[in-house]
């Protein structure tokens, strides 16, 4: 069992800690849409070193200068990534 956790919006440090605490060793985190902004957050970025980022969403938000990021280039790669995990979970934090 493995899960791809998806975040599509800015979240707080506390919310990120809740999310990370729920992840098992086989899980991954993918940032899409406004969630891409998290990698430019000075407080949260150090905790997101293992996160993947949907590049097509990041690029349209002016985020492209972070070479250490594990980019998922486009939606074809996004689909391929979901196929690698047995399930996905989109965190909404309402």
């Amino acid at each position: 069992m493995s899960c791809l956790h998806i975040v599509n919006r800015p979240i707080s440090e506390e919310q990120l800690e809740t999310l990370v605490a729920s992840m098992s060793s086989n899980d991954s985190l993918l940032l899409i849409e406004d969630g891409c902004y998290l990698i430019k957050n000075n407080v949260l970025a150090p905790k997101l070193k293992a996160a993947k980022v949907l590049k097509i969403d990041a690029t349209v938000r002016g985020i492209s200068d972070t070479s250490s990021i594990d980019w998922v280039p486009d939606y074809d790669a996004f689909v391929a990534l979901t196929a690698e995990f047995t399930k996905t979970l989109t965190w909404t934090f309402h």
Partner: peptide
């Protein structure tokens, strides 16, 4: 899809995802 078509990217993202699913043979 639960995001509003007016205030979220949900529909645009989902449409791209669906199209990519079929391109990938799913």
């Amino acid at each position: 899809v639960t995001g509003s078509p007016y205030t979220s990217q949900a529909h645009s993202s989902a449409q791209r995802f669906v199209d990519a699913c079929y391109r990938q043979g799913h």
